[in-house]
Nucleic acid binder design. Sequence first.
DNA 1: ATGCCTCCCCGAGGGAGA
Length: 259
Amino acid sequence: MKIATFNINGIKARAEALPRWLDEAQPDVVLLQEIKSVDENFPREIFEERGYNVETHGQKSFNGVAILSKLPLEDVSRGLPGDDEDEQARWIEATVIGKQALRICGLYLPNGNPVPGPKYDYKLAWMERLYHRARELMASEEPALMAGDYNIIPQAEDAARPDAWREDALFRPESRAAFRKILNLGFTEAFRARTQGPGHYSFWDYQAGAWNKNDGIRIDHFLLTPQAADLMQDCQIDAAVRGHEKPSDHVPVWVQLDL
DNA sequence: ATGCCTCCCCGAGGGAGA
């Protein structure tokens, strides 16, 4: 089973590039971030005619997450628990029924800039809520994963120019510590379990020719419970997608699981 | 680089992103 995460930066803007990538990459499941659409306006037909079940958790203009799945989805849940006041659509989870059940969680973690400020406070509070959900998934002792745009640069080697990010919410020590606190529950960061060293990125800014200079950062991640990590056969970043026509600023990251 | 693009709102130009 091939499962991908992809921050598409607007479903309307990606109405051609996203299906093109689906047809070529043939993922079974896709976790989408930044659909920037309300549920009613999400173009489900584009995906349903390709055999995907579609579950969305959108809002007007900003954020918004969704799941596309060629396999049946059960027990869909929207919104990260822990704050009933939180209006931002950044979390969706469901169970995919393959050879065995897999719980999948799609997330769009807050950017957090500028630092300091209310947006950074929100980021750290959101990560604390994420920690609690992560601990429940770990306690279930079942195959599960949390994937999406974490807006976290885990290590200096995950940025082409780490010094440019030192004071940024994506690379601040508090942000990285909150990410490690979740990892240290026992999750496997799928990409780093298979590929070491610098030069692997999942985001390149639209500005200043970042893609042509390979001035990127790696901020889209898969975290697997031990039971899911046991099933991992591959994890790759589809970096070439950044060079396609009318690209998102992020590219897809995917795992192959023996499911 | 406290913003060089691109997205969203819509029908101008400002907020947000990372």
